[in-house]
């Protein structure tokens, strides 16, 4: 069975890579297989990992104490009214719950972790080159994105420094992206040459 899996994986990998030559039916086939299996897997996994243990099993074993679980269960069912033209207004209730709760949780978490903590970490004493570069970079980049004053004179100079900081950041990000894509190619090559063809020591 393991050998069959390896052969299947190798052939599907080659089908996907054949797109690099040109679009073709083998690539389309592998793409559709991937999308179909992923969708089926997601549904089955959600049912087995979430719906059954967190909703169905508790309701069946102890309905008296867990009857409140009917509320999220009902909200979940209401999502499917999206497919009904007559009753799709019922979708608003679960959506408003999800959006409200999600916004409440995310806004506080982001303010705390991504705004306050970052501002605190940037307000550094300017007693080292690193700290000067960091604080200067943040200020210059913020000035670049400040559009209420024309980028001329001193403001233009600082904004230009901000552009340099942005370019360096983009360069670093692009370098990392190249590294990531090459890593994926290496991973597939290790699979094809090692697991499939047994050419690697």
């Amino acid at each position: 069975m393991a050998v069959f899996g390896i052969w299947l994986g190798a052939l599907l990998t080659l089908c996907i890579y054949s797109f690099l030559y040109r679009d073709n039916p083998l690539y389309k086939f592998a793409e559709h297989v991937y999308v179909g299996i992923s969708a089926g897997y997601f549904v089955a996994a959600e049912v087995h990992n979430v719906l059954l243990p967190n909703l169905i099993a508790p309701l069946r074993s102890d309905f008296g104490h867990r009857f409140y679980l009917l509320v999220p269960g009902l909200l979940g069912v209401m999502v499917f009214f999206a497919f009904s033209r007559r009753l799709n207004w019922l979708l608003r209730y679960p959506l408003s719950f999800v959006v409200g709760m999600g916004a409440g949780l995310t806004v506080t978490a982001m303010l705390s972790a991504d705004v306050m903590a970052q501002v605190q970490a940037t307000a550094l004493p300017l007693n080292s080159v690193n700290n000067v570069l960091l604080a200067g970079g943040v200020l210059a980049t913020l000035v670049y994105f400040f559009f209420s004053a024309e980028h001329k004179g001193a403001v233009g100079g600082v904004a230009a420094a901000g552009v340099w900081y942005l370019m360096i950041a983009f360069g670093a990000a692009f370098g990392y992206t190249v590294m990531a894509r090459i890593s994926l190619l290496i991973g597939r090559m290790q699979f094809l040459l090692g697991d499939w063809l047994h050419l690697l020591r």
């Binding site: 903590a117 605190q120 950041a169 590294m179």
Partner: peptide, 23 residues
């Protein structure tokens, strides 16, 4: 590796205790 640069800020602020970026 694609997402490694965005974690620099968390490393610098001490919110993240070390990081391994990509391969």
């Amino acid at each position: 590796a694609v997402s490694a640069p965005e974690f620099s800020a968390y490393l610098q602020s001490g919110q993240l205790h070390g990081l391994m970026g990509g391969m």
